[in-house]
Structures are given as structure tokens and as C-alpha cells.
């Protein structure tokens, strides 16, 4: 049984008399221990989706099941109990500014009526886990963004939840801090087996920690599957856009007068062969490398390249066929001009 199961979920908002459909017919199941990414451009509806998982937003249609329990069937009190078992962290950290670090971590335990001594002991353990044991008495205003998010993570874990929801949790942080927070999430996932749902607009966040991913575009789920699958062979335009970035207008494209751009992904053995060099030698045609990168996806090194091909169709097709035959995944990059 899935930990989180979303069935035919639709959410509408009334904005000044107009109905806006924020989410339409979303189906999703997340298994225990997954780190599941939900990615989309801003305004795609992903924040609404994550808020449906703990029913901060109640869907108009469809259902959300946590461990098989349909949230719409719960009474207000039972729903609050359920929420306490789902931790959540936010882009803006949302710490209580007037409480110190340990006070913040103790807060959900206090709400649940845990005795103070017990709560403090648990909070200290968690602060050790997020490596902030020396900041116990500091106030949020004295902490950096990364430290604040660590406090928020400790706070979200205080009630021993089975699920952790992360709403753009690293979007307000610099790249190094982002990496350290993502590493921490991964570590927690591995050590306590908690299911993590990561909402983001950055593909790098997904490739860094997620096992599976769903792509949300304008309220609809356009693609889902393993990160490796979607990264190597994205099917939807939205996925392609998120992977390669919206604007691929590298200056060399114009200088070489190549308008056809493709994205190739190396994995497994193809990384050992000089495929590109072979293609150039064999076909006698220039290939321009516009971007090259290696990423760690689910523990595997995956190489990615954006190539500029000759303008005329025939040789370009030849090159594509050759690359495909060599076992590479090839997708055309949508030109936005």
C-alpha cells in the first residue's frame, strides 16, 4: 500500500467571481521511503498539491489517502492528529521568531501535550541530528538561512512523522547551503526511512535527491516516473524545459548558423566510448558542443550534452541516427525563438 495516494484530485479557486482551476485530475502514489519530487514552473499548482497532502487545502474533487485513510472522511480532530504525523518545511522557514531554537523544536510536542522534560530531551536529540546542538538558546533572528531550515527540519521531525513535506525548502538558500540541506534530507530519509515529498522548481534539486518525480504543468500532471527515466528521455515539453532550461540561446549557435539543437544523455557504457568524435570522423560533419555536464542521478553518473547540428536536415538526421545507434538518448531541444 502506498503511503500517499492521490486520486483524481481537482482543486478550484474562486478569484473575483472567476473560477481558476489550480489542479486538474491529479493521480499520484508515493511509496514508503521514497524521496518523491514534484516539479513545475511557478504557478503550476505544485504548492497547492503539497498542501492537499495534509489537507491545508481541501480538494474540490478526488481524494487523498494517507496509509489508506481517506482524509475527507476524517473529523476535524482526527485530521489535526493526522497532520501531526506529517511534518512540513517551507521556503520561508516559518519559525516562531519569539521562541528560541529549542522552543521552536519543542513547539509541536507542546501542541501534542508531551511533558516538558520529554519534549526537551527529544528536541536535543533532533538538534544533534541537524548539527545545531550548540544553537539551542539562539533565536531565529540570529541564525543564517541554512541554520533556520535545519531548525525547521528538526521541528518537523519532532512528532516522529512518517511523511515530510518540503515546500520549496531550498529556494531561498544559496547553492552550497542548498546542497547541505539536501544532503541532510537524504541522510534522514536513509536513517529513519521517512517518506519525503519535495516540491521545487529546480531540476537540480530533483536530480540530487529524488528517486521519483512528477512534473506538474498548468495544473496537470504531464509526466511521472523515475528520475533517471525522465532525465534521460523526457517526453513532455514541460519536462524538457525544466531539464534544459527555458532559453537555450547560446551565442555560438548563431555564429555557426546552426539552428537545430539536440540534447543527448550518456549513461552506462556509452560514457566510455568517444561517441562524438567517432560521429564527426565517420560523417565528416561538424558538431558544436553548446553545453556539457555530468550529474549524479540516483547514484549513477549521467552525462548530459547540448549539441548544435548543421543546419540542413539530412546530415543532422544522419548524426541523430548515429548517436541513437550508439546507445545514447537523444531529444530535440525546443527552440523558443
Amino acid at each position: 500500500m502506498s503511503v500517499i495516494e492521490i486520486k483524481n484530485l481537482t482543486k478550484k479557486f474562486e478569484v473575483e467571481g472567476n473560477t481558476v482551476i489550480a489542479l486538474e485530475d491529479i493521480n499520484l502514489s508515493i511509496e514508503k521511503g521514497d524521496i518523491y519530487g514534484i516539479i513545475g514552473m511557478s504557478g503550476a499548482g505544485k504548492s497547492t498539491l503539497v498542501r492537499s497532502i495534509n489537507y491545508l487545502e481541501k480538494p474540490n474533487e478526488g481524494s487523498v489517502l494517507i496509509d489508506g485513510i481517506n482524509l475527507s472522511e476524517l473529523k476535524e480532530k482526527e485530521l489535526r492528529k493526522m497532520r501531526a504525523q506529517i511534518g512540513m518545511i517551507f521556503q520561508g522557514f516559518n519559525l516562531l521568531e519569539q521562541r528560541n531554537v529549542i522552543g521552536n523544536v519543542c513547539f509541536p510536542l507542546e501542541l501534542a501535550g508531551t511533558p516538558k522534560n520529554e519534549a526537551r530531551a527529544r528536541a536535543r536529540d533532533l538538534l544533534k541530528l541537524v548539527k545545531l546542538e550548540d544553537k539551542e538558546r539562539s533565536f531565529p533572528s540570529q541564525l543564517s538561512g541554512g541554520q533556520k531550515q535545519r531548525v525547521a527540519i528538526a521541528r518537523a521531525l519532532a512528532t516522529n512523522p512518517r511523511i515530510l513535506l518540503c515546500d520549496e525548502a531550498t529556494s531561498a538558500l544559496d547553492p552550497q547551503t542548498t546542497t547541505s540541506i539536501l544532503d541532510l534530507l537524504k541522510e534522514i530519509n536513509e536513517s529513519i526511512g521517512i517518506t519525503i515529498v519535495v516540491i521545487t522548481h529546480q531540476m537540480s534539486v530533483v536530480t540530487e535527491i529524488c528517486d521519483k518525480v512528477a512534473i506538474i504543468d498548468r495544473g496537470k500532471m504531464v509526466e511521472s516516473g523515475s528520475v533517471e527515466e525522465i532525465f534521460t528521455a523526457p517526453k513532455s515539453d514541460a519536462a524538457r524545459e525544466l531539464i534544459s532550461g527555458k532559453d537555450i540561446r547560446y551565442t555560438p549557435v548563431k555564429q555557426l548558423n546552426t539552428q537545430k539543437t539536440i540534447r543527448i544523455v550518456f549513461k552506462d557504457n556509452s560514457a566510455y566510448e568517444p561517441v562524438l568524435a567517432n560521429a564527426v570522423l565517420k560523417l565528416g560533419r561538424p558538431i558544436n558542443i553548446l553545453k556539457a555536464d555530468t550529474q549524479n542521478i540516483g547514484g549513477k553518473a549521467v552525462g548530459e550534452m547540448i549539441l548544435g547540428l548543421p543546419n540542413d536536415d539530412d546530415p543532422a538526421d544522419e548524426i541523430i541516427t548515429y548517436l541513437k545507434e550508439s546507445g545514447l538518448s537523444v531529444t530535440e531541444v525546443v527552440n523558443n525563438e
Binding site: L56, N94, E97
Partner: peptide, 15 residues
């Protein structure tokens, strides 16, 4: 009061 903090409290199951 920051609405985010209130949302966080709601997410923790606060009445």
C-alpha cells in the same frame, strides 16, 4: 503576524 507561521502551526495539527 506572518501567515506562514500560522500555516506551519496548522500543519503541525494546532487547534
Amino acid at each position: 503576524v506572518d501567515t506562514g507561521v500560522i500555516e506551519a502551526a496548522k500543519a503541525m495539527g494546532a487547534t
